[in-house]
Design a protein around this nucleic acid. Structure first.
Lengths: 252, 252
DNA sequence: TAGCTATGTGTCTTTTGAACACTATCAAAT
DNA sequence: ATTTGATAGTGTTCAAAAGACACATAGCTA
């Protein structure tokens, strides 16, 4: 079988997969999107995984990640960034539950698979995962409560977290996790959740405002049982200007 | 054929390769290690590539990178760090010279290959590349003079450079590029070469000395036609201490 | 011994980071 | 109507780090 016929048949490449670590935020804590194999085994985190699957030979890695995420969770239109490749020969066959899962979904469950991991941040309320394909369920799990996952996905999650922490210091990526209109307190809370430490309120507000990437909407929260907060939106234009000039870090 | 027999036969995985971007420094400029396909074509940069080859199904990616580098250039004992995966379906077949090379070295020259790129820094004089396997020659090329390479290796080189620039601000990796005993001026020059900009001499010296990762050897250069410089060595112990406490950046 | 060349050194100014406490505004309860 | 509870919003001071800047020194060579 030559390459051309392979292309037409959109064959899965048995050796390469993509996995997607999708972070969400509900204004209180950080979540990660997981799917469940629906295995016969007792429910446990070892049955859960981040969405991922083999790539087609015709698509590039970024496209594959977008497709796989859509197929497993119905989530679309998000920007994914590569974390890196994970390729230990035993990365997917260590646990019994891993092998059971692979036998259920893979034509060649014994094949050696290296995976390319991606991560992204989304506004949780805008993305209601709906399980499909081999995912028996899909949903958000608090990152702090995840201690184990199928395959090497716990390692992949940790690598995603590290990259998120590194990135948020040099790019205002956090806005993808918030509603369009948000308060400085919400943004503040988000940074604290991601970096897992307290940040001084006044210093935070000063620094973030000095970046000039927020637009004050002159709108207030309504119906809150306390002093209502100003609402802001992310100013993409100014952000792009700032990115080009280059800014080194937010210094948190 | 099952996995076990594959393992015994150490089969090459036709779909996954590793590529190694190795940087060197000769106290004057930054170099990258390239191999030549020795193609029949006229000599050109499109014939050159960074060392790389398919992985075995039995080895992990890091091991594969080390092995491939050794096989192609006889370079051993270096620490490689992953850059990321490159997987465009057309990444290796765009140019005629690419296809000619693949036909010469691959059992399945048409196969779709995703590659995992690595980078490293070495002391140039300690690593005299000797071409072997399918590399017809191997040698150092000044990074500033490389404008084109085989496959997508020019992109991979640029990604390596970016990672190097990012890394050198937060880790004193540069010491791998210098002789064991070096002067502050040499270190200074190295930072200027990597970051491609001038750095104030006095500020540089102050900052780097304040990190306490250099040991003054109380030795001087000899035979130089100017005031001889103090020699320093890298203090790994203090560096490790510093790494654990965590330091954010060198601020250059 | 004069000249060349790169080394080595200190101060001042500006910018940035970190610590810190009180008043204001709304809704809900009384 | 008043009180209470909850979060928003705001400046100053001190310490540390960054950045700009110029001249004497030590060895070699001619």
């Amino acid at each position: 079988m030559n390459l051309q016929s392979k292309k037409n048949k959109k064959e899965l490449n048995p050796n390469v997969s993509v996995d997607c670590v999708i972070f969400g935020f509900d204004l209180d804590q950080l979540y990660v999107l997981l799917i469940d194999s629906g295995s016969t085994e007792a429910f446990s985190q070892a049955r859960m995984a981040v969405p991922g699957d083999l790539i087609f030979d015709t698509e590039n890695l970024d496209e594959a990640a977008i497709r796989v995420l859509r197929e497993l969770t119905s989530i679309e239109n998000i920007y994914l960034e590569q974390i890196g490749a994970f390729g230990d020969p035993n990365r997917i066959g260590k646990k019994d539950s891993d092998r059971e899962w692979l036998e259920a979904i893979r034509a060649q469950p014994e094949a050696r698979v290296i995976t390319v991991a991606y991560y992204s941040l989304v506004r949780m309320p805008n993305f209601n995962p709906k399980a499909s394909s081999f995912a028996k369920s899909a949903g958000w799990a608090p990152v702090k409560e995840v201690f184990d996952l199928a395959f090497d996905h716990y390692d992949i999650l940790q690598a995603g977290l590290e990259q998120l922490r590194r990135k948020i210091k040099i790019q205002p990526i956090g806005f993808n996790l918030l509603p369009e209109k948000f308060t400085l307190s919400q943004l503040h809370k988000l940074y604290e959740c991601i970096l897992d430490k307290e940040l001084d309120k006044r210093n935070f507000r000063r620094k973030i405002l000095n970046l000039n990437i927020l637009t004050n909407l002159d709108e207030k929260q309504i119906g809150v049982p306390h002093k209502p907060s100003q609402l802001f939106e992310f100013n993409e234009e100014n952000y792009k200007k700032l990115s080009k000039e280059g800014f080194d870090n937010f210094g948190f």
